[in-house]
Amino acid sequence: MAVLGFDTATPSTAVGLLRDDGTAFERRDDPPAGARPNHASRLLALVEEVLAEAGTGWDGVGRLAVGVGPGGFTGLRIGIATGRALAQARGLEVVGVSSLRALACGAPGEGVVAAVLDARRGEAFLAAYGGPETIVAPVALSPHDLAAAVAGLAPGVRAVGDGAVRFREQLERAGAAVPADGDPVHRLGAGPVCRLGAAGSPTARDSLVPDYCRAPDARPR
């Protein structure tokens, strides 16, 4: 059975399908810098597109892999609400995948990878992985604390993600290698989400929730 995966933690909408035979299909929407994300309007349409391209109807899908962040709250909720409802409608298994781990898995090569996403409000979400091992669990940090955390990792650690681009200066000063701004390694793709989802164990539908990494703003309307 195929794994359908998607992620909405970043302004991009990334959707993929991984067939049993290893064939992968991917679709994505990348709004221009500063533009509003299109998660609400594009996610389901991209899902239908990969299903059509893969020639797999819903009957051929056995599992959902859903990026749970950390990332933008509204985008995460659109992705997870969509995942939970698809699971409810089709009786599918569902696996929550860390968006930072998926980002790190998209970086080729060996060694420690720091996955850094722009967390808005001048902060970054960071996690670091050495292969399957989690070295730093997802956390929201100020640029100063981000640099300190990365400086404590292996020398020459590679930092990827839109947060690595945004905080390049601080990261490079802390000893990290940040690939060129336009390098696709900075984009969170659905391929790793599907692969991690295929390898992970399913969770109960109602325990699939975002990894917010931040308390809500408790200001009444």
Binding site: A81, R84, A85, A89
Partner: peptide, 9 residues
Amino acid sequence: ATGKALAAA
């Protein structure tokens, strides 16, 4: 998002 996904699936 929930209603759309339920209906679409």
